[in-house]
Design a protein around this nucleic acid. Structure first.
Lengths: 347, 347
DNA sequence: GGTGTTTTGAGGTACGCAACTCATTTTGAG
DNA sequence: CTCAAAATGAGTTGCGTACCTCAAAACACC
């Protein structure tokens, strides 16, 4: 039986004593306040580093006193995935309250750059942190940069704006997600050859485009016997997706695979069932919702690629909090994984 | 643009005033201290509930003063999965230090019930919480119950002892994991018929037995064309696993699937490669390690069933902390998922 | 050497709660 | 009604940090 300890317990007073300065000076160094000679700064910082001193978060939080306000800017309209994120934030209410954190939902039309940018501008100054489901557009980028400039911590959620100065992105790598979908469709189809259909919301959406890109990458390089048909744009609407797919199924009797990139899942499933081909076609889609769960259990869907909405919600809050406190981020913890969900590992 | 708030900010003093009692009485109620009339207790509790009051964790933590000590009881010996858990605990050191938490590793022979039970007994009283990779055995169960009796919070990790009074289990449902493996092997094999091999550490290990059970369940009900061969017991050792599997591959030319339930992965892979059949056989195993990662990228392994060791480590700490503080547990957050990892969604 | 400026020390207050003491009031049993 | 026990009020102290003020000391410059 072996033991190993990972612990310590120093206070600011100890650091002050060891560095041979007063508490006030340590405080000045710790918070980058002016009025300390560079030489002294170095001495204090070395003492802190040498002792691996960590301020007691609880004490710091208590002393700071101020409650923190975060805003979540989410799409308006009935998107089940976004609703799940909101639901999980609701479940955290006790956790949030115990830390005197407030999280406010701001719904807006995230697909209209100017509206989204305007929404973001109104938040400036009022919040310590903002999580935003962002569209990658110059106006949005500028709005994000303005927020950052004003000292607000900004996290992009689900959809990134890599060229902005946002502090962190909480979401998955959509190209890898598309690749995963491609590998699944190809592998589950097996030896057969035939055609593969893709239904997306719009190829103008960054995440959809990236997923399609990854999907095609894998299909081209690894499944040459499968012929990928042109993308159907269903605008994430059930009716439209169903019509488009039904027509396609009618024209091609040898469709063996189907990748649904975005929402509109009900329409896609209806088209498949309507043609009586739900058992012959390998169907891979995204996200675990009440509907996809049912489709997986019924065997209509074969796999769902999922990014855990609960994890995303919590990760966004934790990252904002860590940023606001100046704490390090546990990057491993906050990284969102690409989950493959099949019938037997449904969460 | 719509808004909705989830917040509040009361203190104990407010509760005392509203309930018409003194701070001392609220404190007594809050901590189940004696000396309060049942009637008053109820009144105070109602006030707390009505206002959804949450004590400020930072203030509580600071006032309590005492640092919390947790122990992780882990298997001795070189198990990569366990080493990963330890590594992630190490990465949390700054996080832990900032909260004045200490986590101590206690390695012991978890496969010998009496040794494990003895190890657990020695911890009594010294720790606020214990996470243990447990063997399901009456002696171990009793040791766990003793710890709980003494006020220590106990969490079982990876392997559960459901009949004990442990407060929480952090790990996956191994039957479901086996089912998932079965579905993957069956689906990835496709139309073909043939034989399927299983290599396990030992059928005496609860988690291995459960996985095999789930695997067989799915094979029997859904893949009648696949013939599951008797389980090989490789004791999680590379050499032994390789020998047994090599012999089996020699005897059966029509093996199309392989499920490696535990460790010994290197041996299993060597046997496959040695027979030159790594491309013909669908190979599903467990856990993402440096080795399985390489095998997945090479196409030798087709999928790995994984329980995120980092998540398990963090979840165990968070659950112990929440239990110690008397906070609610975010069950959704702490639930460990069964991850399906293929080449394109390698974390 | 004197001036003004920068740096440092010393100390206080506040944050919200835990944990404790001690005095006072209320209650219930006889 | 009496008296002990139970219940409650009032108050104190301390946790470790943030943030502030004011005075003293050190320093730079001419």
């Amino acid at each position: 039986m072996a033991e190993e300890t990972v612990s310590l317990a120093l206070t600011l007073k100890d650091i002050a004593r060891e560095a041979g300065v007063s508490l006030a000076t340590v405080d000045r160094v710790l918070h980058n306040r002016p009025g300390v000679r560079p030489d002294t700064v170095r001495r204090v910082q070395e003492t802190i580093a040498r002792n691996a001193f960590q301020p007691h978060v609880a004490a710091a939080e208590l002393a700071r006193g101020r409650a923190r306000r975060f805003a979540f800017v989410m799409p308006s309209g009935p998107n089940p995935f976004m609703q799940q994120i909101e639901a999980y934030l609701g479940e955290m209410s006790a956790w949030l309250a115990a830390r005197r954190l407030s999280v406010e939902m701001v719904t807006t039309d995230v697909f209209d750059p100017s509206v989204l940018a305007a929404s973001l501008e109104t938040l400036s100054g009022d919040y310590d942190g903002v999580a935003v489901v962002a569209l990658d557009h110059p106006g949005v980028r500028a709005a994000i940069n303005d927020l950052v400039e004003a000292g607000t911590k900004v996290v992009t959620l689900v959809s990134d704006v890599p060229s902005s100065r946002r502090h962190h992105y909480v979401g998955i790598d959509n190209i890898a997600a598309g690749r995963t979908a491609g590998a699944l469709v190809g592998r589950l189809i097996g030896q057969k050859s035939g055609k593969v259909a893709i239904v997306a919301g719009s190829q103008g959406l960054r995440d959809h485009a990236e997923r399609i890109f990854g999907f095609n990458q894998v299909m081209a390089s690894e499944f040459p016997d499968l012929n990928v048909l042109p993308v159907l744009e269903g605008r994430d609407e059930d009716d439209r997706s169903e019509q488009l797919l039904s027509r396609l199924l009618g024209r091609h009797a040898d469709i063996v695979g189907l990748y649904n990139v975005g929402a509109g899942t009900q329409g896609v499933a209806s088209a498949l069932s309507g043609a009586g081909r739900e058992k012959q076609v390998v169907f891979v889609g995204h996200d675990v919702t009440a509907l996809t769960r049912r489709l997986l259990l019924q065997g209509v869907m074969d796999a769902a690629i999922s990014q855990n909405p609960g994890h995303e919600a919590r990760a966004a809050v934790r990252v904002l909090l860590a940023l606001a406190r100046g704490e390090p981020i546990l990057s491993e913890q906050e990284k969102i994984r690409i989950d493959i969900v099949m019938r037997d590992n449904l969460p």
